[in-house]
Design a protein around this nucleic acid. Structure first.
Lengths: 162, 162
DNA sequence: GCTGAAATGATAGCTTA
DNA sequence: TAAGCTATCATTTCAGC
């Protein structure tokens, strides 16, 4: 379901190498990137630009230490909707996207729940968050929460098959 | 637990604005960043560099479309350890970090489980993933899996109080 | 800690292979 | 598609406030 005029070339080894490096350092100079993938600068930049246009590269982000912005506490919350109309799902979808504490929200199979990942400052904010989500979204019932004691791994980087 | 010689200045409004913008576009030119926060280029770069040194900015990353790298399927897996020694936790920690499919792993309170987020290509890879995690880590018992049907929101960006 | 200007270095566009 | 050259633009450094 793309809207491009040109057919999309399959990614080759060089593209994979570029993606691997940019997932590690998104602010890398194109000169260094080109050098490390074994291209000269021009074709390297062209590949990057093309992948940006084609939606392969979806953006570049700085990662900020959550504690420094008063969001040291990470929680996961499972939400269940008690009556599951299409309208309800749409409404939930729209509302949950607006909540800044919510970093992720996924519709999961099984009991057809939402799994939400949120960052807050402290335990006192937890009640407020639950209240904001649960009360604002009629039909939603909180089923379970997890408070994260230790973050063992957290990355966006998807493994690249050389 | 920092190892810097100089005391760390608290983040001010300008720092917050910088962080907000770099969380939205990590490859932004310093010139544009400076303009948008209302500084000239030199002090703006100095602030960015300082925050990088101080661990406020933890890195810059390109975000890649998972489907393009054959990892269209997102799953969450809860893992329980059946005998919980400190050694066991350490072993688990080390091993789980090596698994490329695992994007996140958190030690969560409650039943003292691990919550794992992983990306795989298709359902067939799911068994392999469970096997690799469960078999490699003695004492681990898989308690529950969620397959994501729809990704409603996914960001790393932490809300910045202006 | 901020500004501005000058030197260095990176990128984008054009041309050829 | 890749590479090289050149013009433009961004970043770094330095002097002064």
């Amino acid at each position: 379901m793309r809207t491009q005029r040109h057919p999309i070339r399959a990614l080759d080894k060089l593209d994979h190498r570029i993606l691997k490096l940019l997932q590690q350092d998104g602010r890398m100079a194109m000169k260094d990137l080109a050098e490390q993938v074994g291209l000269s600068v021009t074709p390297c930049i062209e590949r990057v630009k093309r992948m940006e246009r084609d939606g392969v590269i979806m953006g570049y982000y700085a990662r900020v230490n959550p504690a420094e912005l008063g969001a040291a506490l990470l929680v996961f919350v499972e939400i269940t909707l008690d009556h599951k109309s299409g309208n309800m799902f749409d409404q939930f979808r729209r509302e949950v996207q607006k909540i800044p504490e919510v970093l992720e929200c996924h519709l999961v199979s099984g009991d057809f729940d939402y799994l939400i990942k949120a960052r807050i400052g402290e335990m006192a904010d937890y009640r407020k968050l639950l209240g904001d989500i649960l009360l604002q979204l009629p039909g939603a019932v909180q089923s379970k929460s997890y408070v994260v004691m230790e973050e063992i791994k957290e990355t966006l980087a998807i493994a690249v098959g050389e």
